[in-house]
Design a protein around this nucleic acid. Structure first.
Lengths: 335, 335
DNA sequence: GCCCCCTCTACAAGCGTTTGCCGAAACTCC
DNA sequence: GGAGTTTCGGCAAACGCTTGTAGAGGGGGC
């Protein structure tokens, strides 16, 4: 169960541990005689020596580890982001350490503490909410923090985000172009910046385009299928005449809307057009195939990983903002 | 950027670092005078002291970290498992370190090496293939290894798996009960034990129930939507008369089958019944809603995490085998 | 009043690396 | 052949923490 150390290899070869260390370190290997080096490598292989990254980390201050804070790994939206992160990190042999906040502030704080304790080389927050600003900025004084997926407005922290306002505007324009004039949006929790941006931009676009936005006073606590259903039911219950189109702040809620509309005897897109956000996997397979705004999840993850690598290399970095794209399928149609 | 250490706190209070260490360690705190302890805690808080887990890990040999090896985080099948793992690990304040093999053996081996180098306290392999037996058993001599999701047959390593044979049998029986007599299965890669078990059990059940199994000679390299489509097209191309029902080894392939059948002008379930495996999220939302065998992903993850905790606590553990369940929806119907 | 015991804290070693410094040997050059 | 340079490798400190040991001081029992 216990693994050989540098000392063991050194004893085997008959040299000093520091020599072994040098021989095995590509950057310093030219400091040792090729023959010794060969002998060391040979012995290391024979004994099955593996560097003790923990010891190295203590000495060097680097753990080749980054912390990834997600809100909820059960949400199909986050996986592709993490997938992107691990893909870009692989080159640097960095591995992500993952934790979930469940969107609870206190838990977020604990996780950040924990990660700093572990001396991760950097942290990527995918779970940022408006109220988390303080703890994130505090953490950033200890280790580099990258904000990804959910923006933190007006912050100096490096960010990898997406033009949520642009996406919501696309949605509004698409509906307008199809002739819709009475529309509604189902909002996600507004302390997640993506949703507040979407909400504002959509409302602004409605005003600009002369569409009537039917108020849906409530917003989702957690933007899930169940919440989409609930909000839709509330909307239908309140309005004598439903809107001709609904913009759901994400695809999950859109799925709930679909179910609620169906139950209310309304067909999509014949009676009501529906547009989502994110373009989750399989959204082309539901019926009707969902018109949505594509959110570049994997690319966000990739960019976040690359940003981290640049930061660790000491480079000057700039924020990244990726663009949405309208994906027209079958859930929207001309009025 | 540099954080206070035990020494800093000790200096602040005017005691020896070891006293600080004890004062801050709940298990040993009764060894120090309550007043000193109070002073220490106070100073630690004031300075923003955080224990250096790396140093502690070097000393204690424990990193409170486990390695999770997945094949591909892009596959919606694995996320719920990881979700379950992090949920169960949270209690022990253990965090998972994640890497992806992309189902490449060489990469798997590298990752395992890497994780052992990091001195993870244990490894959970979600990416096991038949050819990985050796490296896993070697690794298990260094750190506890738990096999989850994909079984490793006839191994002494602790496993958290699922009765794939039972699930495939359920599928066959369901089809038989609906009156189907000519059926086919689309197989995943057989060096992943789940698929070989499903394949064997399905074939056996067909024989037992007197159903004709139409051979699909090829199997998927990677069981994706595209592969499902490809296999289905191959099947349709070869057979003058298609089977009346198809069992796809997972839902992803089933989605591909659905598309291929539709393109060939065959309706599901009217012309061909289709049953998948896994019950991925949203499979109830596609059209037709997919009949499938539920795979308890989250529970597998939870159990794997719990198993790790027990192993680390030195307890004797036994394998876990969870049961599948038939989920009947709209893609199968009586002939 | 002496001894013993108990409570509390200090000391130091050790976990496995890395790395600056120094010395020994070998080589170069005239 | 001697001075200077290079090459190679050993030594030891340091990274921040835990923990066994030991010692100082105080209290209690007789």
């Amino acid at each position: 169960m216990s693994m050989p150390t540098l000392d063991d290899v050194a004893r085997e070869v008959g040299v000093h541990p520091s020599t072994v260390s040098r021989a095995l370190n590509p950057n310093r290997a030219q400091l040792v005689n090729p023959e010794t080096r060969k002998a060391v490598e040979e012995a290391a292989r024979r004994l099955g020596y593996r560097p003790h990254m923990v010891a190295r980390g203590l000495q060097s201050g680097r753990t080749a580890t980054i912390g990834v804070v997600a809100a909820d790994l059960g949400n199909p939206f986050v996986t592709p982001i993490i997938h992107g992160i691990t893909a870009s990190l692989e080159i640097g042999e960095i591995m992500p350490v993952i934790a979930e906040t469940q969107d609870e502030h206190e838990r977020f704080s604990r996780i950040l503490d924990h990660m700093l304790s572990r001396r991760v080389d950097a942290v990527i927050s995918l779970a940022t909410r408006a109220g988390d600003r303080r703890i994130l900025e505090d953490a950033a004084r200890i280790a580099p923090v990258v904000i990804a997926a959910r923006p933190l407005p007006e912050s100096d922290l490096p960010q990898v985000v997406h033009d949520d306002g642009g996406g919501a505007t696309m949605a509004a324009e698409h509906l307008h172009q199809l002739g819709h004039r009475r529309v509604a949006q189902l909002r996600g929790p507004l302390d997640v910046a993506n949703f507040s941006h979407r909400a504002e931009a959509f409302t602004a676009a409605c005003a600009r385009l002369g569409m009537t936005e039917i108020e849906v006073p409530e917003m989702a606590a957690v933007p899930t299928i169940a919440e989409g259903r609930r909000l839709t039911e509330a909307l239908l219950g309140r309005e004598k005449e439903p809107p001709t189109a609904i913009f759901a702040h994400n695809d999950l809620m859109a799925m709930g809307t679909l179910a609620a509309l169906r139950e209310a005897g309304l067909r999509v897109p014949d009676d009501v057009s529906l547009i989502g956000y994110n373009d989750l996997p399989m959204m082309d397979l539901v019926t009707p195939a969902l018109t949505t705004i594509r959110y570049p999840s994997r690319e966000i993850g990739l960019a976040a990983g690359e940003l981290v690598i640049e930061i660790l290399a000491g480079e000057e970095v700039k924020n990244v903002c990726l663009q949405p794209a309208l994906v027209v399928r079958d859930s929207t149609r001309p009025i």
